[in-house]
């Protein structure tokens, strides 16, 4: 049974790359390219895991994470944050807001897979 991942990212080529990697590993990948209605999308699709970019058009990834954590249904949703800025400040902000994992671009494909798998397993272990 394939797990569903929602990828929220605005860079088309990165969407393409991550979708390809996860699909090949058996994940069902859903994508969303802006920040404005990202939370709605999460609530609607109810993915098992969210990959969230920080710099999104319309709304920052941090804001989206904050809202997800504030809402009961998504409070425990595994969220893997991606950022291209790679500053420690971003990492700290992400952890404080309750990101499950944090990755800096550019990443290796194996790293992404490993993270997604670990997060999904963690959820299963809890559930």
């Amino acid at each position: 049974m394939g797990k569903r991942v929602l990828l929220i990212e605005d860079e088309p080529n990165i969407i393409e790359a991550i979708s390809f990697i996860l699909s090949r590993d058996g994940w069902e990948v859903d994508t969303h390219a802006n920040g404005t209605d990202a939370v709605d999308k999460v609530n609607r699709r109810q993915p098992d895991l969210v990959i969230l970019d920080v710099m999104l058009p319309g709304r920052s990834g941090f804001d989206i994470l904050k809202e997800l954590r504030a809402n009961a249904p998504t409070a425990g949703l595994p969220v893997l944050m991606l950022t291209a800025r790679g500053q420690t400040k971003d990492r700290e902000t992400a952890q404080a807001l309750g990101a499950s994992r944090f990755m800096t671009k550019p990443f290796s494909n194996a790293e992404v897979l490993e993270s997604v798998r670990a997060l999904a397993a963690g959820v299963q272990a809890q559930g």
């Binding site: 860079e11 080529n13 990165i14 393409e16 790359a17 991550i18 990697i21 291209a84 800025r85 790679g86 800096t104 671009k105 550019p106 990443f107 290796s108 494909n109």
Partner: peptide
């Protein structure tokens, strides 16, 4: 710099 790098590395 990192955004194009990400795509290049991934692909």
């Amino acid at each position: 710099l990192r955004t194009p790098m990400t795509s290049i590395r991934a692909f």
